[in-house]
Nucleic acid binder design. Structure first.
Length: 276
DNA sequence: CCAATTGTTATTTA
DNA sequence: ATAAATAACAATTG
């Protein structure tokens, strides 16, 4: 489920109730898959009694900083979620990490276990965090770097290229489709076939979708929305892409769904043509 | 039983 | 050697 804006929504959900608070109890389900890069025991020891000081998101990753130089990384994978419950919450089957404060229970759940937890100690943020590619909304996400990347991936369909985190951090399946739809680019277009003008439009829509999604989904600049997706306008492709018989909100032509680059892809034949 | 799922990575193919 | 395609991971739902 989670892409850049959903990840920010979940981070805020934990942060708003727990920032500045002490973790009194830590519970884990020590599943190898979830804890594949960080054993659960040291994580439990370090977080018990620690205070949540700060948190941040980058791409699809979250980093929570605790007192005592403890860093907790979360990647939600396909089905991960961060939730907040009352103090009497009982750990469920798919709850891999449960953090209790005097007022709330924070839960990381992930039935499919494509997600993972990271843990590090030290004065500085861990290396995996600082290695994440520059954000879509940063000044380093330039037209030139995008154009150079498309040249290197010239033969791959543009849809597959947008999913590459090394250049498009935080973009997932729905964001990629939304961006291509707005840019009026067919998802099967070879990345190397885009004209300079099309490349500039693509970059602009990457930033626009990131900005608008953060505002609509994570409530950036305002209160946290009660749920994901409640504020997404029907003018976006998003609200039509999974409904059978869905229509393009701009051309009112039936949308198409096909597998491209290994993922189900939705586009509007009214707007997005293969040959331009 | 079959197919589907908003992600990533290892392996195979070209 | 590099890039692109494919399989695999696990659980649940329709």
């Amino acid at each position: 489920m989670p892409e850049l804006a959903e990840v920010e929504f979940y981070r805020r959900r934990w942060h708003e109730v727990a920032a500045g608070r002490r973790i009194t109890v830590v519970q884990t389900h020590d599943h190898k898959k979830t804890y594949r890069s960080a054993p659960a025991a040291p994580l439990r020891n370090a977080l018990t009694g620690a205070r949540l000081l700060d948190s941040a998101t980058a791409a699809k990753q979250m980093l929570f900083r605790f007192s005592g130089g403890a860093w907790l990384g979360v990647h939600l994978g396909m089905s991960g979620e961060l939730t907040v419950h009352p103090v009497n919450y009982i750990q469920g089957k798919h709850d891999h990490l449960v953090l209790r404060t005097s007022r709330h229970t924070l839960v990381f759940s992930d039935p499919r276990m494509f997600g993972k937890l990271e843990f590090a100690r030290g004065p500085d943020a861990p290396a995996w965090w600082t290695r994440i590619a520059p954000a879509l909304l940063s000044t380093e996400f330039t037209a030139d770097t995008v154009a150079a990347f498309l040249r290197r991936r010239a033969k791959a369909p543009i849809k597959a290229v947008l999913l590459m985190q090394e250049r498009f951090p935080g973009i997932g399946n729905w964001m990629a489709d939304e961006i291509l739809w707005r840019a009026a680019l067919h998802p099967r277009r070879a990345a190397g076939s885009l004209t300079p003008a099309e490349t500039r439009v693509l970059r602009r829509e990457c930033r626009q979708v990131a900005r608008q999604a953060l505002r609509a989904i994570a409530g950036q600049g305002g209160p946290l929305p009660p749920d994901l997706n409640v504020n997404i306008p029907n003018t976006w492709l998003f609200n039509h892409r999974w409904t059978d018989g869905g229509l393009c909100p701009r051309t009112h032509v039936p949308l198409i769904r096909e597998e491209i680059g290994g993922r189900t892809t939705c586009w509007s034949p009214g707007r997005q043509r293969l040959k331009s």
